Amino acid sequence: MTVDQLLQALALPDSTRVQQRVPKKLLVEHGAATAQDKRLIQDGIDEITWLASLKPHLIGVPEHEDEHRHYREAAVLSLSLRPGTRPARLVELLHRAVPHPVLLATTVDDSLGLSVAHLRRSQTEAEQVVQDGPLMSVQVPPEGGGAAFRTALALANQPRTDLFALVQGWMDTIAALDAAQETGSFVPSTSRAQAEARHAALQQFRGLRAQAAELRARAMKERQLARQVALNEELRSISALMESLRQKLMVGGG
Results as ranks from 00 to 15, higher is better:
D43R: 13
G44D: 01
G44K: 05
I45Q: 09
I45M: 09
D46L: 12
D46A: 13
E47K: 02
E47V: 10
I48E: 11
I48S: 11
I48D: 07
T49C: 13
T49H: 07
W50S: 00
W50Q: 05
L51W: 12
L51Y: 10
L51H: 04
L54Q: 03
L54T: 00
L54E: 01
K55V: 02
K55M: 14
P56Q: 01
H57R: 04
H57D: 13
H57E: 14
H57M: 09
L58H: 14
L58M: 06
L58P: 00
I59N: 08
I59E: 06
G60I: 01
V61Y: 06
V61C: 07
P62R: 02
P62A: 10
P62M: 03
E63D: 13
E63K: 01
E65S: 10
D66L: 05
E67H: 12
E67G: 03
E67S: 12
H68D: 14
H68L: 11
R69H: 09
R69W: 05
R69T: 13
H70L: 03
R72S: 13
E73M: 13
A75L: 13
A75P: 04
V76M: 08
V76P: 08
L77N: 06
L77P: 07
S78C: 02
S78W: 13
L79M: 07
L79A: 02
L79Y: 08
S80Q: 14
S80I: 09
L81E: 04
L81H: 06
L81S: 06
R82H: 08
R82G: 04
P83H: 10
G84V: 04
T85L: 14
R86F: 10
R86V: 14
A88V: 07
L90C: 02
L90S: 01
L90P: 15
L90D: 01
V91I: 11
E92K: 06
L93M: 09
H95L: 14
H95M: 05
H95P: 10
H95Q: 11
R96A: 14
R96C: 08
R96E: 15
R96F: 06
R96V: 00
A97D: 07
A97M: 08
V98R: 00
V98Q: 01
P99C: 12
P99L: 06
P99A: 10
P99Q: 06
H100E: 15
P101N: 06
P101M: 08
V102C: 13
L103A: 00
L103G: 02
L103I: 00
L103Q: 04
L103E: 02
A105K: 03
A105C: 00
A105E: 07
T106W: 12
T106I: 06
T107P: 14
T107V: 12
D109K: 00
D109M: 00
D110W: 02
S111I: 02
L112W: 05
L112S: 03
L112V: 09
G113K: 05
G113Y: 09
